[in-house]
Computed example of a mutant assay.
Amino acid sequence: MQDENGISFFGALWNGLIWFIQNIAEAFYNFGYAITHPQLWLDWSNKEAIMRFVYYGGSVEFFFVIFALFLVLTAIGLYYRNFMWGMVRGLEGFANTTGRFFAWAGLLMVIQQIVIVFMQRVFTRPDMSFGLGIPFQMDISWFAEELKLYNAMVVCLCCTYTFVQGGHVRVDLIYAGISHKAKRVVDMCGAVLFMMPMAVLTWMYGWYFMWRHLIVPKPSASDTLDRLVAKSRALRWNVETIGFSPNGFNAYFLFKILLVAFAAMVFLHAIAFLYRSYLEYVEGPESEGKYLDKDSLGEGEEAYEGAH
């Protein structure tokens, strides 16, 4: 009985390995077919193309296309170290640029909150109106609830920027006391075992969560491509516009889009962090922080660097 269990275990392991290798090999064909037939998934005047886009965005095929591309870029980077540094600088630059731009949402949030207080308490107005020509006029409660969107932008789109800047809170039990190479090994393991899987799981959940609030019939992660294509005959856009209060903020579908954007940015930065950790491991302590574009609070504020 034990021998049979052992054989079945190793048989399942072997079949899983074969499946994994086959999907990597098929990823190159799938990628080539997708870019040579964009009308099958990008022509959104065709309802079937929309459903194909929905299916492939959260599919195993898409995951292995990304994974195969990652393997190819990693192989090139291992051979040409400057190419890997270029990818690190590009991905960190993307995180910094995005984060620095959307960090201004925090200022907008403060200004809008002050305006809301004045309009409610000083001018006793039930609504606010902005714009030239055709004004944008909504109830005060709409603008009050919209403040959550600014907060979500800061959280989702500035997360990797904060990571680059070293601004996340850390609980350090052993990291500070270990050697430079041991730190880089910990960083590489963290990127592969924690950051990447978390980003993939968040994407898989968030992708279908987003589309279920944009179209009907509602797609499901368990739906096959053929089933989704069949559903496309009844497809129509049904963007979520329901607020928590009668006159409250009614564009909550934007939060679903931000969730997907957050997962994508974390995955991309996990790659950047993995590459940086490997390069700093290979090149030694003198390469620590190489090409790192960190913000400065100005002369005399060195004690606060990394704490903002």
Score class of each variant (00 low, 15 high):
residue 250 N to T: 11
residue 263 A to K: 07
residue 261 A to W: 13
residue 284 G to L: 14
residue 257 I to P: 13
residue 260 V to S: 05
residue 276 R to H: 00
residue 258 L to Q: 07
residue 266 V to A: 06
residue 245 S to F: 12
residue 278 Y to T: 02
residue 273 F to L: 09
residue 275 Y to N: 05
residue 266 V to G: 01
residue 245 S to K: 04
residue 249 F to V: 03
residue 272 A to V: 01
residue 252 Y to C: 05
residue 254 L to I: 12
residue 246 P to V: 11
residue 248 G to Q: 12
residue 282 V to M: 10
residue 254 L to P: 01
residue 263 A to H: 03
residue 268 L to C: 09
residue 256 K to V: 10
residue 255 F to K: 00
residue 281 Y to V: 11
residue 283 E to K: 03
residue 274 L to P: 02
residue 263 A to E: 09
residue 267 F to H: 06
residue 271 I to A: 11
residue 247 N to S: 13
residue 273 F to K: 06
residue 261 A to G: 10
residue 249 F to N: 05
residue 257 I to C: 12
residue 251 A to C: 13
residue 273 F to W: 15
residue 257 I to T: 09
residue 255 F to L: 07
residue 257 I to E: 10
residue 277 S to L: 03
residue 268 L to K: 05
residue 272 A to K: 03
residue 271 I to Q: 12
residue 276 R to V: 04
residue 277 S to M: 02
residue 253 F to N: 05
residue 247 N to Y: 10
residue 257 I to G: 14
residue 264 A to F: 12
residue 257 I to L: 11
residue 268 L to A: 09
residue 248 G to S: 01
residue 256 K to C: 12
residue 273 F to S: 09
residue 254 L to K: 06
residue 264 A to C: 12
residue 274 L to R: 01
residue 266 V to D: 09
residue 260 V to M: 09
residue 280 E to T: 00
residue 278 Y to I: 02
residue 245 S to Q: 15
residue 257 I to V: 11
residue 271 I to R: 03
residue 271 I to K: 05
residue 264 A to S: 13
residue 253 F to S: 12
residue 282 V to R: 14
residue 268 L to Q: 13
residue 278 Y to F: 13
residue 263 A to C: 10
residue 281 Y to K: 04
residue 259 L to D: 15
residue 260 V to I: 15
residue 252 Y to L: 10
residue 269 H to P: 04
residue 250 N to P: 01
residue 276 R to L: 04
residue 265 M to C: 07
residue 272 A to P: 04
residue 269 H to G: 00
residue 265 M to P: 03
residue 269 H to M: 03
residue 247 N to V: 14
residue 270 A to F: 02
residue 254 L to C: 07
residue 258 L to N: 14
residue 274 L to N: 05
residue 281 Y to T: 04
residue 269 H to I: 03
residue 256 K to E: 08
residue 251 A to N: 11
residue 245 S to T: 10
residue 276 R to Y: 03
residue 249 F to G: 04
residue 254 L to F: 10
residue 247 N to H: 13
residue 253 F to Y: 13
residue 246 P to T: 12
residue 249 F to L: 02
residue 282 V to Q: 08
residue 282 V to G: 00
residue 279 L to I: 06
residue 259 L to Q: 10
residue 277 S to I: 07
residue 248 G to R: 03
residue 274 L to D: 14
residue 247 N to T: 09
residue 249 F to E: 06
residue 250 N to W: 12
residue 266 V to T: 04
residue 283 E to S: 15
residue 252 Y to I: 11
residue 284 G to H: 09
residue 267 F to I: 04
residue 257 I to H: 15
residue 281 Y to P: 01
residue 254 L to A: 15
